[in-house]
Computed example of a mutant assay.
Amino acid sequence: MKITVDIDCTPDEARTFFGLPDVKPMQEAMMSQIQERMTASLSAMEPETMLKTWLPAGVQGMEQLQKMFWAQFAGAGRRENKE
């Protein structure tokens, strides 16, 4: 035998029924604090400084790789012109 029961309620009603606390005010307070801190940090940094902070090795590594490729291409062009 199989019995199915459908209960139609909102998440707030289900939380109250099971006795779970309402954490929405705490979440809103924490999110506002996080937003304030991020806004203060972002406004204090210049775009170039932000990129170097977030991607220190990646950006510098890509710049070095690009310089190496350009040097190789320039060297290959000089050799072809001399021959």
Results as ranks from 00 to 15, higher is better:
residue 54 W to D: 07
residue 14 A to L: 15
residue 61 G to H: 00
residue 77 G to Y: 00
residue 82 K to A: 15
residue 11 P to A: 06
residue 13 E to M: 09
residue 79 R to I: 09
residue 48 E to Q: 08
residue 78 R to I: 10
residue 58 G to V: 04
residue 23 V to Y: 06
residue 17 F to R: 12
residue 32 S to L: 09
residue 30 M to G: 06
residue 36 E to H: 06
residue 14 A to Q: 06
residue 62 M to S: 08
residue 72 Q to G: 10
residue 48 E to L: 05
residue 46 E to I: 03
residue 25 P to G: 03
residue 7 I to K: 03
residue 6 D to S: 14
residue 58 G to R: 05
residue 67 K to S: 08
residue 14 A to C: 09
residue 39 T to V: 07
residue 59 V to W: 02
residue 9 C to Q: 14
residue 62 M to K: 11
residue 55 L to F: 15
residue 64 Q to N: 10
residue 13 E to N: 07
residue 65 L to Y: 11
residue 21 P to H: 02
residue 41 S to V: 10
residue 50 M to Y: 13
residue 67 K to F: 02
residue 69 F to L: 14
residue 1 M to F: 11
residue 67 K to M: 05
residue 72 Q to E: 13
residue 51 L to H: 01
residue 34 I to F: 07
residue 23 V to C: 05
residue 76 A to S: 08
residue 51 L to D: 02
residue 38 M to P: 00
residue 33 Q to Y: 05
residue 33 Q to L: 12
residue 9 C to D: 09
residue 67 K to H: 07
residue 64 Q to K: 10
residue 76 A to C: 08
residue 31 M to S: 11
residue 61 G to P: 00
residue 2 K to W: 10
residue 16 T to R: 15
residue 59 V to N: 02
residue 47 P to W: 01
residue 29 A to Y: 05
residue 70 W to Y: 11
residue 66 Q to P: 00
residue 28 E to A: 12
residue 42 L to W: 07
residue 15 R to E: 01
residue 77 G to R: 04
residue 43 S to T: 15
residue 79 R to F: 11
residue 79 R to E: 13
residue 63 E to F: 09
residue 60 Q to D: 14
residue 29 A to C: 03
residue 50 M to P: 01
residue 25 P to L: 03
residue 56 P to M: 02
residue 7 I to N: 02
residue 59 V to P: 01
residue 57 A to N: 10
residue 55 L to V: 06
residue 82 K to F: 13
residue 25 P to D: 04
residue 75 G to T: 12
residue 70 W to P: 00
residue 78 R to Y: 08
residue 57 A to T: 08
